[in-house]
Each structure stands twice: as structure tokens, then as C-alpha cells.
Simulated scan of single mutants.
Amino acid sequence: MEPLASVSLASGASQRSPGWQMQLRVDYVVNKVMQTHRGQSEDAVKQAIQDQLRSVGVVPNGRQVAQYAAVISQLPLLPPNNSR
């Protein structure tokens, strides 16, 4: 009888870094806040990011949140969506 080849079911998943799901959640929240809070005060943006990160199960990194908030608060407001 010939020996069987080994089978690895997790070969595709092992190429991802350990925190990839958390980073997807952070990206989602930052993009969402970028659409709703751009141009507002840095403190308001920071609070919105922290609240929404906690709601998706991510413990906010204060330094990272501050960097995102600083950039988002400097963005110009989006024009109103009048698609009617």
C-alpha cells in the first residue's frame, strides 16, 4: 500500500495576519465616520470613532483614533445628496 499524502485544510487562512478581521472592522468604522463627520471638530470625530469601534467589538487604540480624527476633521464637507 502507498502512503497517503497529508491534507491541510487551513492552507489559505494561514497566509492572513492574526488581526485581519479587526483591521477590517476599523477600516469600516473609519470610512463610515468619514462620510458622516467630516469637517466637524476633532473631539466629535474622535468620540464617534471610539463609540462605533466599541459597538463592533474593537477596543480603540487612542493614538490611532487621534490620527484618524485629525485627518477626518480637516476634510471638506460632502455636498448634499439630491438624487431625487
Results as ranks from 00 to 15, higher is better:
19 G>N: 03
82 N>P: 08
19 G>V: 07
40 Q>Y: 14
20 W>A: 10
32 K>M: 13
71 V>P: 02
55 S>P: 06
70 A>L: 13
56 V>K: 01
73 S>Q: 00
59 V>T: 08
27 D>M: 14
47 Q>I: 15
65 V>T: 08
43 D>P: 00
72 I>G: 06
62 G>A: 10
38 R>G: 04
73 S>Y: 01
12 G>S: 10
33 V>N: 00
82 N>R: 11
51 D>R: 15
55 S>E: 14
63 R>Q: 15
63 R>F: 12
57 G>H: 05
80 P>Q: 11
82 N>L: 13
7 V>Q: 11
62 G>Y: 02
50 Q>V: 10
73 S>E: 03
27 D>P: 12
59 V>Y: 01
81 N>K: 09
58 V>A: 09
8 S>Q: 12
80 P>D: 08
42 E>N: 05
24 L>G: 15
35 Q>V: 10
11 S>V: 15
11 S>N: 10
2 E>F: 09
28 Y>P: 00
26 V>T: 03
18 P>E: 11
66 A>Y: 02
6 S>E: 11
61 N>K: 00
78 L>Y: 09
8 S>I: 10
81 N>P: 00
35 Q>A: 09
61 N>V: 03
39 G>T: 01
17 S>M: 07
44 A>Y: 05
33 V>M: 05
72 I>R: 03
49 I>E: 03
3 P>Q: 14
55 S>K: 11
34 M>Y: 05
22 M>Q: 14
8 S>P: 06
52 Q>G: 07
18 P>Y: 11
60 P>V: 06
61 N>M: 02
78 L>H: 13
2 E>C: 08
19 G>D: 07
53 L>M: 08
16 R>D: 08
59 V>R: 00
19 G>Q: 05
27 D>G: 12
29 V>G: 03
34 M>G: 03
62 G>R: 04
48 A>P: 08
28 Y>V: 01
74 Q>R: 06
70 A>P: 09
70 A>E: 05
5 A>E: 12
51 D>Y: 12
9 L>T: 06
46 K>M: 02
27 D>K: 10
23 Q>L: 09
81 N>G: 02
46 K>Y: 06
61 N>A: 05
67 Q>N: 05
76 P>M: 02
76 P>Q: 01
8 S>R: 09
73 S>T: 00
34 M>V: 05
41 S>T: 14
22 M>H: 09
4 L>A: 13
54 R>Q: 06
20 W>N: 03
18 P>D: 13
42 E>A: 11
